[in-house]
Computed example of a mutant assay.
Amino acid sequence: MNIGEASRASGVSEKMIRHYEAIGLLHPARQANGYRAYAGGDVAVLRFIRHARDLAFPLEDIRRLLGLWRDRGRASAEVRGLALGHIAALEAKAQALQAMATSLRHLAATCHGDDRPDCPILDGLEGRQG
């Protein structure tokens, strides 16, 4: 199948398919004319990558997960370790985002939001306490 068909079958854009090939996550066959030829296995890899990206795995972790997925003799402990490490990173990011929202909520609560030029939000972004 061609790249458009692989894109439709996997839910991954053609641009991202080319990117995944460029960084070595995908290795489609090439036809005599140089065009990529995708097989069912390539679509499975693209779906795997898409699902891993939907869970916000970084590309290097996806590379490792793909290697483990392809290795039928793998130890599931390594996969679990990657997943647990990613969970910890996501939870840390969620806490950091919550702290940012709390700070911004405080700045917004102190802003009058009227015609006056003084603005505690801008003062806070500048590093001044308003």
Results as ranks from 00 to 15, higher is better:
Arg64Glu: 15
Phe48Cys: 07
Gly11Trp: 10
Gln98Trp: 01
Met100Pro: 00
Arg63Cys: 01
Arg30Asp: 06
Arg47Asn: 00
Ser76Thr: 14
Ala83Ile: 12
Asp123Arg: 10
Leu97Asn: 09
Arg116His: 07
Val79Ile: 13
Ala9Ile: 02
Ala56Glu: 14
Arg36His: 04
Gly73Ala: 14
Arg30Phe: 09
Trp69Gln: 15
Ala39Tyr: 10
Ile3Phe: 10
Leu104Glu: 08
Gly113Asp: 11
Asp114Leu: 09
Ala52Cys: 14
Ala29Leu: 13
Ala9Gly: 04
Gly124Val: 06
Ala101Met: 06
Ser13Lys: 13
Asn33Asp: 05
Gln31Glu: 08
Ala9Gln: 13
Ala92Trp: 00
Asn33Cys: 02
Ser13Met: 09
Arg36Glu: 03
Tyr38Ser: 00
Arg74Tyr: 06
Ala6Cys: 10
Asp115Arg: 12
Leu55Ser: 10
Gly73Cys: 08
Arg53Phe: 05
Ala101Asp: 02
Glu126Ala: 15
Pro120Val: 08
Gly67Tyr: 12
Ala44Asp: 13
Leu25Trp: 06
Leu66Asp: 07
Gly40Glu: 14
Arg105Lys: 13
Ala92Leu: 00
Leu104His: 05
Gly67Gln: 11
Thr102Asn: 12
Thr102Val: 09
Ala44Thr: 14
His19Asn: 10
Arg18Ala: 07
Gln129Val: 06
Arg30Gln: 11
Ala32Leu: 06
Arg50Ser: 00
Ala56Cys: 10
Ala56Gln: 15
His51Gln: 15
Met100Ser: 11
Ile17Gln: 02
Ala92Pro: 00
Gln129Leu: 10
Val43His: 09
Leu107Phe: 07
Lys15Ile: 14
Met1Ile: 12
Ile3Pro: 01
Asp115Trp: 12
Ala29His: 11
